[in-house]
């Protein structure tokens, strides 16, 4: 009952808010949002909406390999954007690939955000030795490029797990690797904001009544530091998708049987100079549009939530 009421209230407050106003006023942002939404819906419903299920190896026909897009001579209408070296429909692999990319992106952002926010809150609120330990670990981690960490984690997993198991676990390994290499910026941001918030008098009022520090952190401080975290999270989604694509392009990402956008570009790259351009170009275009949309949304969110820039 009260959940419904507060939900209604939230929607009403959102529709009347400055953030929604600045959203409506910017066509770029509306388009970016629509495209992101389209990608997400398509990714979520991919297995049911793609014209060909390219995960079914039995349904593939090598006779249909290397077909150009439908509008080029020699192309078939059933394969709108052409087929790849194994006769897989490029459009279907892109939609299914975007699904893999987005799953990895969301999962790794979720992991990094949870880890980073929790550690940042504790570091900022508790302070002292705890703070020093957490932030020195973060500093050390920050001195390595993220992609190196990811390669390291993936390499170790590859060495430890048998090949078929690794193919199955590849997505989880990638999520773990990206998550573990990107939590630092959440932790640093949250720590900084927590240092400001914990000295405000509403936190002290909660301490006067003897509330447990964990309750104070999550009930009082957390809601007041989440704004910037959402912005980093949105921008982080683009970075995570791109990192996953980079890894898959380098051949250490998800297996080619269930390719992500990066894997598709890598496969297509092999044939780019033999004339079969569609296999690399179309996944590339989709990747660019996806990341551009997400980043535009993140940029807008950052500006919209920062009253000083208005």
């Amino acid at each position: 009952m009260s959940v419904w009421r507060s939900l209604q209230d939230l929607v009403r407050r959102f529709l009347g808010s400055d953030v929604f106003y600045s959203f409506r006023r910017s066509p770029t942002v509306v388009i970016a949002f629509a495209l992101t939404l389209l990608f997400m819906v398509a990714a979520a419903l991919a297995p049911w909406i793609v014209p060909h299920n390219t995960y079914e190896v039995a349904s593939l026909s090598l006779n249909d390999a290397f077909l150009p897009p439908a509008w080029v001579s020699g192309g078939k209408l059933t394969y709108l954007l052409g087929t790849d070296d194994q006769g897989r429909d490029v459009f279907s692999t892109i939609v299914l690939g975007a699904r893999v990319s987005l799953i990895v992106g969301f999962a790794s952002v979720f992991l990094a955000l949870t880890l980073g926010v929790a550690l940042g809150l504790v570091a900022g609120y508790v302070g002292g030795i705890t703070d020093s330990i957490i932030m020195r670990v973060a500093d050390v981690k920050l001195s390595f490029p993220a992609i190196l960490i990811v390669l390291l984690i993936d390499g170790v997993a590859r060495g430890l797990l048998p090949r078929d198991l690794h193919d199955k676990a590849a997505v989880y390994v990638i999520v773990l690797a990206i998550g573990l290499s990107t939590w630092i910026q959440y932790a640093r941001t949250v720590r900084g904001l927590t240092l400001v918030e914990k000295n405000k008098e509403y936190v002290q009022a909660a301490r006067v009544i003897g509330l447990h520090p964990i309750l104070i952190m999550f009930r009082h401080v957390l809601p007041n530091v989440m704004g910037p975290v959402l912005v980093i999270g949105t921008l982080g989604l683009g970075v995570a998708v791109l990192t996953e694509s980079t890894l898959s392009f380098l051949g250490v990402g998800v297996p080619p049987t269930e390719p992500s956008l990066g894997t598709l570009i890598r496969i297509g790259n092999n044939f780019l100079f033999s004339g079969e351009w569609w296999m690399a170009i179309f996944p590339g275009i989709f990747l660019v549009i996806l990341i551009l949309s997400v980043n535009l949304l993140g940029d807008w969110l950052r500006d919209a939530l920062n009253p000083k820039l208005r």
Partner: peptide
């Protein structure tokens, strides 16, 4: 401990200086 303090804490309260910082804005 916290439990031992609670009965005393209930009986003393504080009013703060800055009314704009002493209430959680959310």
């Amino acid at each position: 401990g916290r439990a031992e303090m609670a009965p005393i804490r209930r009986r003393l309260q504080m009013i703060f200086q800055d009314p704009f910082a002493s209430l959680n804005p959310r």
